[in-house]
Structures are given as C-alpha cells and as structure tokens.
C-alpha cells in the first residue's frame, strides 16, 4: 500500500530528527571532552604525549567516519564489546569529533602569541596557570567560530549512523521514501529539518562572537 506524504509522515521525520539532535549532542560532548585532552596533549611539552595526540589526529582524520562507525559497531564485538546502534554511533562520532576538535583547538591555543606565554612565565606563573588563566581564555575566543562550524559538520555527519540501522533523520527519510515513493517531498523535508538544526548554530556562533568581543569593551 502506498502512503502519501502528509502531516503524519512529516511528524515521523521530526521525531526521528530528535535522535539526530541527541546523537549530535553526545558526539559533541564526548568529542569535546576527549578533544580537549587531545588538544592539550598536542601542545604539551612532553614529546610522547604530543606524538600520541598527533597520531590520533592524523589516523582519525584520515579515516572516513563511516569506517570508524563500522569498526565500533561490527569490529568491537569481535573483542567482546557489543553496543546497541545508538551507543555505537555515539562512540564512533565521539572518536571522529575528538580528532577534529582536538586539532581545531590545538590551532587556537597555538594562535595565542608566544609573548603571552613569556609574560606569564616572567610573572612566575606555573605552566598550568599560564594555560588556564592566560592562554585558554584567549584561545576560547578564537575557537568559537570554527567550533560551531564543526558542530554543523557533526549534525550532518550523524547521517552515517543510518547505515548501522540507527533510525535518525536520514534513516527515517529512506524508510518514509520506501512507503510513499515521494522522494522530492520526503528528502526535501529531511533537508529542511537538517537546515533547521544547523541554522541556529550558525546564528549562535555569530552572536557568541559578538558577545565575546563586546565583553572586552564593556
């Protein structure tokens, strides 16, 4: 029986989009926490930590997200670790986001002028104090636009989770298309919903940027 694409069908997509939001949030939180560790390791004075972080960044960045996801969902069970699709997708996306955010934030930390470190050193601050009180606050300001830009990438990339059977927005779209055969309306709606999720992020980025800048002048 062929259903036509109406309000109920659209609602189905909206409900699936909530899973996309949840997966995005999990990926951003997990990726953010590990990404912060990766960034700090990457700029550490310990060569081993630096190399581990650099290795992590290049290996993950050089691997398609889809393959990371396959590894977690199909590969880890061979090591006795079996996850439901949502958890597997969240783990895979966390790995992916950690490498990119780690690299973005490394760049922001390194973009703070060397003279700021030297001034803080000259005031006898400890290395961790230099980082926390002098460098990171300046790096955060630089990090807002690329970070929010990357959040948009995360939202869009959650669509790969559809391949391992997790019913998020893209998967819901293909399911709906199979019963309605109205790809224009179905995928048009899917695109619209992705846009509705990403657009606020862009707006937020602009606002934040303005507010951080205004904060310095107040």
């Amino acid at each position: 029986m062929i259903r036509s694409f109406g309000p109920a069908e659209f609602t189905f997509l909206v409900e699936a989009a909530r899973w996309t939001v949840l997966l995005s949030l999990l990926a951003f939180i997990g990726g953010g926490v590990i990404g912060m560790v990766v960034a700090l390791m990457r700029v550490s004075r310990n060569a081993m930590l630096r190399n581990i972080a650099a290795g992590w960044i290049s290996v993950v960045q050089g691997t398609p997200v889809l393959i990371v996801l396959f590894l977690v969902f199909y590969g880890l069970p061979f090591l006795g670790l079996r996850f439901p699709p949502l958890v597997a997708a969240a783990l895979g996306m966390t790995v992916y986001a950690s490498a990119f955010l780690g690299d973005i934030w490394r760049g922001c930390i390194e973009a703070v002028p060397r003279q700021q470190w030297e001034a803080a050193s000259s005031l006898a601050l400890k290395p961790a104090q230099r980082m926390i009180y002098v460098v990171l606050p300046q790096a955060v300001r630089l990090a807002v636009p690329p970070t929010v830009g990357f959040m948009v990438q995360i939202v869009k990339n959650t669509s790969v989770a559809s391949i391992i059977g997790f019913v998020e927005l893209t998967r819901a779209g293909t399911l709906m298309n199979n019963v309605t055969f109205q790809p224009f309306w179905v995928f048009g709606s899917v695109a619209l919903l992705y846009f509705a999720m990403c657009w606020p992020l862009s707006v937020m980025s602009q606002r934040l940027e303005r507010r951080l800048h205004a904060g310095r002048r107040s």
Partner: peptide
C-alpha cells in the same frame, strides 16, 4: 617587554 604583552582578556 617592547610589545607590552598585557593580557587582553
């Protein structure tokens, strides 16, 4: 320093 190096934030 020549470039002051105050903490801008």
């Amino acid at each position: 320093f020549q470039s002051y190096n105050l903490f801008p934030h």
